[in-house]
Each structure stands twice: as C-alpha cells, then as structure tokens.
Amino acid sequence: MRTPWHTAWQGPDLVVFRDDTEVDRFAAAQIERVVFVYRGHGDTPGDLIYAVVELPDEYVLLPVETGFAGRVNFERLDFWAEKQCIYWVPESKASLPARLRRSVWLLRPGAPSYTRVPRSELQARIEQWPLEGPQTWEQRKWMRIANSRPFAGLNPITQPGELTEHPPTRRRA
C-alpha cells in the first residue's frame, strides 16, 4: 500500500507532497528546532511517531508517513549536524491539544495529522516537554552503543589514549 504523503528537499527548501502534489514548502534555514516524538526507546526509525518542526512563527507537525524523519533527515546529515537543532522526546511526555491528536482508538492518543499550528498555541506545551539533545541520529546511535557497554555508568579515570597527571605528592619529613 503506497502512502500518499512524502517530503523532499528541493534546493534549500523542504517540500511536503500529498499524492505527488505540493501542499507546503518552507525554507530549511528557517528551522529553529526539530523534535522527534517516539515510542519505545527512540533508537530506530520505526520508533518515531511524528516530528515537530519549529519555524519562527509556527510549528509544522509531520506524522511518520510523510517521511520527514527518514529521507529528509538522512539525505543531509551534515546540514542537521551543523545546525544542532534535533531533539527527542518520548510520546508519553509529549502532550498535544486534543484537536491535534488522531487515533483509531477512542481513548488512546495518536499522532497528529500533517498541519501547521500557530506558535502561540503550542509553545507553552512544548517548553514543558523533557527534550533530549541536541543530537542527530548518528550521535544518538553512538550514545546508545556507549551506554550499552559494560561499566558504561562509571566515570573512568582516563579515556583511551589519554594520559593522566597526578598532583605531586608531599613527603613527610
């Protein structure tokens, strides 16, 4: 089954399509922050539910089926790494107004549909979210690998390849 939504880079712009018809466009340079909302641990693209793209005057909500977190994100890794604007938040901590949530289940909140929302409507909520980051997918992956190693929670005295300097010891006379 083919999804009618997708996003793509066109020069310096990000474009949102539905059934191969352009429905929105915004300049990548205007992006102030991107927040990926995820289920589980947020370690794989399959954990993502939606993205919130913060622009100067509004937010763009992009559900997973638009592909924003996939193609748009992975095509320009250097852009996102340099911009340092990607943040992460678990779904359970990312509340949205009821009118923006959609779900096939009556009592279970779902991901929002594609929409633009005035900044004044969401800013207070998003500022309450416990954001992780900034970190790209690559940085997140390496942090997960580092944290999965034995003794990851301990602070080592040295890192591999580092030398330590010890303060001089005083001798008793």
Rank of each mutant, 00 (worst) to 15 (best):
E54M: 07
H41Q: 12
E54F: 02
R125W: 11
T3K: 15
F26Y: 03
K93G: 09
Y87A: 00
Y38V: 05
R172I: 13
Q84I: 00
R108F: 07
P97W: 04
I86C: 10
R71D: 13
T21C: 06
S95V: 10
V89Y: 01
G67T: 04
A69E: 12
Q10V: 07
P167Q: 11
D20Q: 08
L77F: 10
E165K: 12
T136R: 01
M143L: 14
V37P: 02
L163H: 12
D13E: 10
E132Q: 09
R71L: 12
G133Y: 04
R76P: 05
P109S: 10
E58R: 07
R39Q: 14
A29S: 05
L100A: 02
R125S: 11
E127T: 04
S113D: 14
P112L: 12
V64Q: 14
H6I: 00
S92R: 09
A29K: 07
V34K: 00
D13S: 10
T7F: 01
L131C: 02
P12C: 00
D43A: 11
I126W: 01
P118A: 05
D78G: 14
R25V: 05
R108T: 13
P118I: 02
L55K: 02
R125E: 09
F74T: 11
P97G: 02
F36Y: 09
E162Y: 14
P45E: 07
V52C: 12
A69T: 04
N73R: 15
R140H: 05
N73G: 11
H41T: 08
Y50L: 11
V52R: 02
W88N: 01
T115N: 04
V104P: 06
L163V: 12
